[in-house]
Amino acid sequence: MDLFLQQVFNGIMFGSTYAIVALGLTLVMGILNIPNFAHGHLYMLGGYLLFFFASTIGLGYWLGMIVSVAAMGVVGVIMERIVYRPLNDQPHINAFIAAVGSLLFLESFALVVWGSQGLRIPNPHPQIIEIMGITMSIQRLLVIFGAIALILGLHLFMKKTILGITIEAVAQNREGAMLTGINVNRVSSMTFAISAGTAAVAASLLTPIFMLSPSMGAILGMKAFVIVILGGMGSIPGAIFGGFLLGLIEALGGGYISAAYKDVFAFGALILILSIKPTGLFGQKEV
């Protein structure tokens, strides 16, 4: 029973990270219909920027986090501007290939600047507490509550602010939004900023628990895709639900069946779901 609860707790922790990474991805896919294969790499870069600002420059964890999230927002804007916008009216597959190009670029950028050795950000809250037989560190709790706070914040942003409502309008009907005079380019670049920023928040929360490595974005990015398809492309509740579901599947599958094949379960679930319901569990939209 204790093992079970411990696995559930870990599943929720990973799930909340997955949920925010997938949220950022689903926003971009809803807006631009582009699978941003480099999304996991934005997460990775966010982690390294936190390391840079918090440890190398010495701003400390919280200030470093704010600066790195802001910096990643700028990275998102740049990425949209120089990689995706020129491909707007070209065949879709060109943007897919450009996405692979950005993925390779970002991963080797981290490799060149920070090396392939794993780096560690000192855990700012390493204290351990025990509740109902589950051991948890404060940082792990912070991951869960931070993620929930971010999701709520994002939800309010999408529903209550003009920019948020505009983003949703563009996601639903790009041509229609253009006709009503919405500056679609500006919305795209804001969406990329939010998407990269949320990835950086996820990285800031989770990386103090684990090591940083240039390759850590690849697998996480692919999981985010699994979640987005699972939940239906462009669906925000789908991304949140899918994130937690995947976290739990992995934690329980990895704990009880096989740790080495942990990632295989996720992708296996993806192929299975696509065969049965191609638009995802929550989706209506064909991309």
């Binding site: 896919m29 699978p35 697998i219 895709f225 990632d263 295989v264 993806l270 191609p278």
Partner: peptide
């Protein structure tokens, strides 16, 4: 399906 699904699934399958 059209579009992104195939690219995503093949990417994931490659990793599997």
């Amino acid at each position: 399906t059209r579009g992104a699904y195939f690219a995503i699934v093949t990417l994931c399958f490659g990793v599997i």
